[in-house]
Simulated assay, not measured.
Amino acid sequence: MKGYWIAQVDVTNPEQYGEYTARAPAVFAQYGGRLLARGGRAQALEGRSTPQRSVVIEFASYEQALACYHSPEYQHAAQHRQGAAIVEVIVVEGLGTVEGMV
């Protein structure tokens, strides 16, 4: 089953955060990640207020999504994000099938 990164981001230092966004996509691609959403319009309908950026990345599997996050390459890129944004990242496993779902 596929794996997904879901990130909520509030950028506090755009210049420094730009260093992260210049590096991270290459790592996602290295691990087979595909950006499905990155910024763009968003509206909070329940829960916390809308973050500045919402990011969704699809991977071939949950394990691949975790491997990307924990990789030395991503951790190096993520150092450029530290102190430049308030970030929440979760990895979720996708559904194998949607048949029978309501």
Rank of each mutant, 00 (worst) to 15 (best):
M1R: 09
K2R: 13
Y4M: 09
Y4E: 02
Y4I: 04
W5M: 03
W5D: 02
W5C: 03
I6Y: 05
Q8S: 14
Q8K: 15
V9I: 15
V9D: 00
V9A: 00
D10A: 13
D10R: 12
V11H: 00
V11R: 00
T12W: 01
N13F: 03
N13Q: 09
N13W: 06
Q16W: 07
Q16A: 14
Y17N: 04
Y17H: 12
Y17A: 06
G18E: 09
G18T: 09
E19S: 03
Y20A: 03
Y20D: 05
Y20L: 07
Y20C: 05
T21K: 15
T21I: 13
A22K: 15
R23F: 03
A24Q: 07
P25D: 03
A26Y: 02
V27E: 04
V27Y: 05
F28A: 12
F28W: 14
F28T: 05
F28M: 14
A29R: 15
Y31H: 15
G32H: 03
G33R: 01
R34L: 13
R34S: 14
L35F: 12
L35R: 15
L35Q: 12
A37W: 06
A37T: 10
A37D: 05
A37I: 11
G40Y: 07
R41L: 10
A42Q: 14
A42M: 12
Q43V: 12
Q43P: 00
A44C: 11
E46M: 13
E46Y: 10
G47L: 03
G47H: 08
T50F: 02
Q52R: 14
Q52H: 13
E58T: 08
E58D: 13
A60C: 07
Y62M: 07
Y62A: 03
E63T: 07
Q64A: 15
A65F: 04
L66H: 05
A67L: 05
A67V: 06
C68E: 01
C68A: 10
Y69C: 01
Y69P: 00
H70D: 09
S71V: 08
P72F: 04
Y74P: 00
A78H: 03
A78W: 03
Q79I: 06
Q79L: 08
H80M: 07
H80V: 01
G83K: 12
G83W: 10
A84I: 02
A84C: 10
A85V: 02
A85N: 04
A85L: 05
I86Q: 15
V87L: 11
V87H: 01
V87A: 04
E88Y: 08
V89T: 12
V89S: 00
I90Q: 06
I90D: 06
I90S: 13
V91N: 05
V92A: 15
V92L: 14
E93Y: 08
G94C: 07
L95G: 11
G96A: 12
E99H: 12
E99Y: 09
G100T: 06
M101D: 09
M101K: 08
V102L: 10
V102F: 05
V102N: 08
